[in-house]
Design a binder for these strands. Sequence first.
DNA 1: ATAAATGCAAACGCTTTGCAAGTTT
DNA 2: AAACTTGCAAAGCGTTTGCATTTAT
Lengths: 140, 140
Amino acid sequence: MSESLLKRCQSVGIRLTEQRRVVIRVLENSADHPNVVEVHVRALQIDPQISIATVYRTVKLLEELGLLEKYDFGDGLSRYEDAEREHHDHLIDIKSGQVFEFCNEQLETLQVGIAKRLGFELRGHRLELYGVPLKKKQNE
Amino acid sequence: MSESLLKRCQSVGIRLTEQRRVVIRVLENSADHPNVVEVHVRALQIDPQISIATVYRTVKLLEELGLLEKYDFGDGLSRYEDAEREHHDHLIDIKSGQVFEFCNEQLETLQVGIAKRLGFELRGHRLELYGVPLKKKQNE
DNA sequence: ATAAATGCAAACGCTTTGCAAGTTT
DNA sequence: AAACTTGCAAAGCGTTTGCATTTAT
């Protein structure tokens, strides 16, 4: 397990305000991929005064510092998660919107190879699988 | 090669107005992934009166009909391309923004397998590789 | 003390939409 | 003729920002 988000924020030396600590804590305690409004709602439970502008500013700052990963699963909302979490991709259930995580070494290797063959050094990727739950044999 | 976008529009039976024909023609002649403003600019060269609202409405309609594929390469702009084009994924050059296409069977198969293992039937995916050009041996 | 962060509200940029006028079938 | 599409301008929506005030260092 790697350092906490808070520790990493301290390492990079950003000013640790009350509000930033709250946002950081919310993200540390989130195992999902909350959008900004969701982060704000969770933050309000800790600090009922915190404004959404501050949440926007904070997640943007942390993303630019490489401490958060930003996602968009197609609904036009920016979602965030701790960048230090084990690398993984996402599978989105198109029926429920639920998001599952997975990681596949073969996939990672394959991608590096594809990029190289195209003349590129892979710096990042975004893979999302969209699917529907497999129906069990008996029904439908 | 499959049917032209125009033909497929006729098949699904949407009303073919002047403006829709223009947008369709623009997309048929585009080998890249134009965003809405770009589609509009290209359309204006054919019909100097066409409004961007109509372009927005048309690409949205065609996407909902499954005739166009919508992409967002991270700049927050919606980009469109003919859905019938040979399936492929994208590699984006982070330096220049240029987009390259590729297709890899192994990758496709792997994804289906991953989804299945998670209990899902794969309905679609989105894969984007982000990279920088490999430097040739002599320079840098 | 000072440089930076906050909250508010206004502004932004892309996209959508209400409506009157014009088109397609 | 009826149903639908267009263009315009206004509204929507997520996100950003100017500014006066507050806060961390």
